[in-house]
Design a protein around this nucleic acid. Structure first.
Lengths: 244, 244
DNA sequence: GAGTGGTCTAGACCACTGA
DNA sequence: CAGTGGTCTAGACCACTCA
């Protein structure tokens, strides 16, 4: 018997019947059809592998991915059970503002309102888990779609972690894009909220003071070293959507 | 040689050195240290496996997970390259409102403002990819933290997909929790935005008309069958945070 | 202590796609 | 059409945890 050949009779000539995707779907079906109820313990990997006529690793991958999205909960020794409270994770695509604007068919433009290098203020040090004296680059930018203000960005960058950015003038590439291109990260914290536009916000974004703004804050790290913190304000008509 | 024993000399007695986690970290390190630059093609799985002294599957898992979070991009035949625009995904935990409130040390309470069964309005059918005559349950609920309004929820439920909910009175369990417990889903769409409180919103949430509200909309499906659509409004001081 | 999931190895076939 | 990633098999050791 060859390696990839299915073992179960009903699967003859139909690889897909024992693929990890098929197993995921079948498990979802059993949950939907109440064969397995929330909170219920389901058979172990070994048993399922025997039932599906596949290797245990294949069942493992299916269950691992279902656990990742919160459909089942797995514990050693305790086994796998259908999640009672599927505290699911939503995945949000983090857009590059230029790409986002251009995807709407609008013309993208940005402007750097201010640029200064200074010691990190206490609040920023706390937010980034930094201590001691830290030089940071503080930038304030406005992004436009067809010359209409689209997003106001207030960013702090840890120069110790991203030294190359100190010489950048951002004539053609926005700080956002420069960082995306040159400073990959492995960890991130995001916070979403709504706030009322201050007089300055309103002036910059071309809206009225007190109008609702969508706030997107993001902090990133690479291997425990903080890179940047950014606060982005969007006009009231902005929607962040994700389907998966 | 036993199955799990590492092959590389430096790994003797240190399994972890060739684990998929180690490989992920090492790849991130190389990106950080500019050994591999954005856009660059990195060695194939086979080569890396040889270099790290591990099986190709192990490298595969490391790279697959890095691709999942957008650090690298993979294509058959073309190989794996460091992402130029790491359009990363943010992961947001979707909270059960009761759990969220109780986590703050506050007392949770909810109230069903209205409950009606009716044919789906056109807008809702479109949103849920439904056609024809569809019976839906429409619910409006208010959630409290220590008797202070916390969230206003406007929900539509597809009775064909979740028939058992028709008899529910929601005396003790909120619709939110009932669904979480009884109607697992496999697909979801979320939309985040900010809006100004209408007079009714303001009245319900105990804030002023025009105050900024954080809006969280969610639609869920199980195996292509739409389950529910919900629009949740939060008071201006609400923040949705996630770190990973 | 024993059972379950977590992970690794070695080898293989296959699908896709870019040179 | 050849090379790369995608995935599967079979077998194994190990870590954690619960009874």
């Amino acid at each position: 018997m060859t390696a990839a050949a299915p073992k179960s009779p009903e699967a003859s000539g139909a690889r897909a019947l024992t693929s990890f995707r098929t197993i995921k779907t079948e498990i979802l079906r059993r949950i939907r059809d109440r064969v397995w109820q929330p909170g219920e313990l389901i058979p172990g990997e070994e048993d399922l592998a025997r039932e599906f006529g596949c290797a245990r690793v294949t069942v493992n991958r299916a269950l691992r991915e279902l656990a990742q999205i919160g459909i089942v909960e797995r514990k050693r020794r305790a086994g796998t059970r259908i999640a009672e409270h599927p505290l699911r994770e939503a995945r949000l695509e983090i857009p590059v503002v230029r790409v986002e604007v251009e995807a709407l068919g609008a013309q993208y433009r940005f402007s750097v309102l201010s640029r200064e290098i200074l010691a990190a203020p206490e609040a920023m040090r706390a937010r980034l888990d930094l201590s001691g004296k830290v030089r940071m680059l503080h930038l304030r930018c406005l992004h436009f779609a067809d010359n209409r203000p689209w997003q106001f960005e207030d960013r702090w960058i840890n120069l110790a972690a991203v030294p190359d950015i100190e010489g950048e003038r951002f004539d053609t590439m926005s700080p956002n894009e420069w960082l995306v291109k040159n400073a990959p990260f492995s960890e991130m914290e995001i916070a979403l909220s709504a706030t009322a536009a201050t007089a300055e916000d309103a002036d910059l974004l071309g809206i009225a003071k007190g109008d609702p703004l969508f706030v997107f804050e993001r902090t990133t790290w690479l291997l425990d070293q903080p890179l940047t913190h950014v606060r982005m304000l969007h006009r009231p008509d902005y929607r962040m959507v994700s389907r998966f």
